[in-house]
């Protein structure tokens, strides 16, 4: 495996191998000296053409803990603002011989395009409405730690499914490992053909949450015109906010997840977000270990 472009083109064994490898890296993050020399001398470029706190920081922490040299590019400070095309930028970066490029971009398919024109490994850190594979992997890792398995679970995925790359990657992953995914949200936010990915669709949040093992909330993405898809935040919250009452339909030991950043009081209630069934911050902690595993498997050796 040279690139990680999406979950769609991975098989179950590859997914499980990444998750198993991540276990060893979790241990490093608990040591006093949180660093191993494994990727010494390798250059990794973090190219985030969209805002990001968690993912960008998580990748950078993962790179540094593996002793890779990491370089960050921000669009506002780059020649893209002078009109350079993305492919020219990519070829110029390639000329500096990096070993890996982490790319986040608002246009779906950007990482795939870069993988064709660059020699280095490409990791998709979120492309448009398409995929966010490392998020799905860290979610799966968190679920497995919590529930001990990834098959036979009932997962409710709620919110703006149409604009969510997190949703798409999670649907691919959880259906491949044999879990049952139900998506829910306002009809305007559910893509017409989403059933083709092997999920169930409902517009009633109670029905989605009923007997769920995992309740995964998605963010209302106001920067991506989801603002046009519902009357206002209060109206949305009235029907779809995960509060005590809605969560009471799930299994008593249900786990609550959110990829962040969360809109408190809109898609998730304060009490739930800070409550003991929420693993939102564990997701963040696990993200570092999972990204270390991905870097290790992509950049080490000739195959894996």
């Amino acid at each position: 495996m040279k690139h990680l472009l999406g979950i769609e083109n991975l098989n179950r064994d590859q997914i499980m191998h990444i998750l198993e490898t991540a276990v060893s890296f979790e241990e490093i993050n608990q040591r006093q000296i949180k660093k191993v020399p494994t990727l010494k001398g390798l250059s990794v470029i973090n190219f985030f053409a969209e805002p990001s706190t968690r993912t960008r920081m998580s990748f950078e922490v993962a790179e540094k803990r593996l002793s890779a040299d990491s370089y960050n590019i921000a669009v506002s400070g780059s020649a893209i603002t002078k009109g350079e095309t993305l492919s020219d930028t990519a070829l110029n970066l390639q000329a500096m011989a990096p070993d890996c490029l982490i790319i986040r971009h608002a246009v779906s398919g950007t990482p795939h395009m870069l993988a064709q024109i660059m020699d280095c490994s490409i990791i998709n850190a979120g492309d448009g409405f398409h995929e966010h594979p490392t998020q799905a992997l860290l979610d799966a890792y968190t679920i497995q730690k919590k529930k001990g398995r990834l098959d036979g679970l009932k997962v409710a995925l709620m919110g703006d499914i149409a604009h969510s790359r997190v949703a798409r990657s999670n649907i691919h992953l959880l259906t491949k490992t044999g879990s049952h995914v139900t998506v829910a949200g306002p009809a305007t936010m559910i893509p017409k053909d989403i059933k083709k990915l092997g999920v169930e669709v409902t517009y009633d949040p109670k029905e989605a949450v009923k007997d769920a093992d995992i309740v995964m909330m998605l963010r209302i993405q106001e920067e991506r015109e989801s603002g046009l898809m519902y009357p206002d935040r209060r109206e949305y919250a009235k029907f779809f906010c995960l509060d005590e009452k809605l969560l009471s339909y799930a299994k008593p030991d249900a786990t609550v997840m959110h990829p962040g950043p969360a809109n408190r009081g809109v898609e998730i209630d304060d009490n739930i977000m800070d409550g003991d069934r929420s693993v939102i911050l564990e997701q963040v902690a696990n993200g570092v270990a999972v990204r270390m595993a991905v870097l290790y498997l992509l950049l080490g050796g000739s195959n894996s």
């Binding site: 490898t21 276990v23 060893s24 890296f25 241990e27 490093i28 191993v36 020399p37 494994t38 593996l66 290790y296 498997l297 080490g300 050796g301 000739s302 195959n303 894996s304």
Partner: peptide, 21 residues
Amino acid sequence: DIALYRDDFFKGLASPEVGPS
């Protein structure tokens, strides 16, 4: 576990399985 400390990491061998220390 020494997998992460090997000096032959880039010598074209399959990446070794990492186990926890």
